[in-house]
Design a protein around this nucleic acid. Structure first.
Lengths: 134, 134
DNA sequence: CTGTATCCCGAAAGATACTG
DNA sequence: CAGTATCTTTCGGGATACAG
């Protein structure tokens, strides 16, 4: 599918977990809970997104955990929650300006991970092998 | 005490917990575990510091938890651990270049907290009061 | 579709006491 | 001084099932 064919689509990132900067082990700097940074990435396109839609790029995170994550982010003022009065219900989540400002330190964290993330793995290897031979 | 009188002293930060950027609730971007960012701040002067010495600015963190934190940071290559062959034993911890590089994203996180940290408290207030009156 | 309600598990953190 | 050894608590996260 080309970009132009994708017009109007929901265009959520699908390779979230392939980004080395998203690997928890290589990114010591985290945002909020386990899923907060990933949700920020899902919403950074500026568009509102629905609940179930968000679950896909998050590897079908359980609804309980996604609810907890979104509620916490809403309470902190990072995301807005809009309920449309329809059947079936439609609820949309979007980044607030405050939430968007969080992308700055998150980008800094990811930049660090891309540059130095490999050094962590190396350090762990030598630490662990040194511990083994003792 | 003036700066010049402080020459040669261990000069660990004493106001760690008064810095709004260190308040967990206002700094959604964290580094490693609960104590990692604080240890980085203790070591950012570039000097080596001893185990018990580190406990003071950390509000007498229990030795078990400090050991776990330092071991994890050592394994990741963020701090070096030097054992001096003396009696009583003297062990010194210092930042490695990799650990020092972590100060970049940490500073970005603290800068965000100083600028927007108050907005979180405001958002929580209105969210909580809105929830109460329901 | 958008959640809640339960139950469960492991990891992180803390209190306390003890050792080389 | 610089840890280790236990024990306990807490909490984030996950599985599953069900409701409006």
């Amino acid at each position: 599918m080309t970009e132009s064919e994708n017009r109007g689509a929901t265009t959520l990132p699908s390779d979230l977990f392939r980004d080395p900067a998203c690997s928890t082990s290589a990114r010591p700097v985290t945002v909020g809970g386990k899923w907060t940074a990933l949700v920020l990435r899902c919403l950074e396109d500026g568009r509102p997104h629905r609940f179930t839609e968000l679950r896909v790029p998050l590897h079908w995170i359980t609804p309980k955990v996604l609810t907890e994550t979104l509620r916490a982010m809403e309470r902190d003022g990072f995301v807005s929650r809009t309920v449309h009065d329809e059947h079936p219900p439609r609820v949309e989540y979007a980044l607030t300006p405050l939430g968007r400002s969080l992308l700055d330190p998150l980008d800094a964290a990811c930049a660090w991970a891309r540059t130095h993330g490999g050094a962590i793995a190396d350090a762990r290897d030598s630490y662990d092998t040194a511990a083994e031979t003792r």
